[in-house]
Design a protein around this nucleic acid. Structure first.
Lengths: 138, 138
DNA sequence: TTATGTGCAAAACATTTGCAGGAGT
DNA sequence: ACTCCTGCAAATGTTTTGCACATAA
């Protein structure tokens, strides 16, 4: 983990980062908490929030401000887009090439200093489609 | 307001929709509450939430699942993209042409039934840039 | 008249924060 | 030692919900 001089390498931080790196599922803070708690049963939810936030600020992870009620976190920091299931809420990566040039267009069309963009697709994932079919059969 | 047969046209609903239609600022539920309360002082915040949600489901307004802590609402339902100020949190429309074709690409690249997409730019608005400059002068 | 909607207050969530004790450097 | 960090619990902020009364149709 990249640390600023005064940022300490604690067990909690290592394990949070390790666990987040193990999955590709963009877990919420609470899901990270559950994952980490299996290895560090006494960790507090506040610590998980504090460290995810800190790592996101430092840039070693991504905080996804996607739809839904909870923020999600991603150990993959290379720019990429997401697709979210409107039924179960899960978020997957989608391999659409990143359009880095549209930031300039956005800057021309607004009076903002444009720093980035994100595309979020929405739809129904295959798991949820299958559930729907099964329900129709019953 | 378009209503389903059993959906009643109440004063509260009319005024919420009217007030939302007056602004282009993508207000939060609480901001809508404040706007509406000037005309209907006894309206409850729960009523505002319930009706904004209902109108969003009916499709007569848009519920924006943008970054930040609060959902925002938009009386303009034609597809369009947004830009959000990372400093003050405000959300503006941005006149970048809608790429309706990328939904197909997304469907090909995922195992989702793709229903839509949204692009959110982020940056610093001109108001906040000015504040920064003023602060540097002090 | 009667089902739907409202105001109010409480509950439910997600997230943040204060603080005393703990641990990395 | 001296900070920074953690666990815990309480606080905060947003959204939802239960319920008795009100009102549109």
């Amino acid at each position: 983990m990249q640390l600023t001089p005064q940022m300490r390498l604690t067990t909690q931080r290592q394990i949070i980062l390790e666990e987040l790196g193990k999955v590709t599922s963009h877990p919420t803070a609470n899901e990270v908490y559950d994952m980490v708690r299996k290895r560090l049963p006494r960790i507090g939810l506040g610590t998980v929030y504090r460290n995810l936030e800190l790592m996101a600020e430092t840039g070693i992870i991504l905080k996804l401000e996607v739809g839904g009620t909870q923020k999600r976190f991603d150990a993959t920091i290379e720019p990429h887009y997401h697709i979210r299931c409107l039924s179960c809420g899960k978020v997957d990566d989608i391999a659409i090439p990143v359009m880095s040039d549209i930031n300039k267009t956005a800057a021309d069309l607004s009076n903002y200093q444009v720093l980035g963009h994100h595309i979020e697709f929405s739809g129904i994932c295959s798991d949820c489609s299958n559930v729907e079919e099964e329900q129709l059969l019953n």
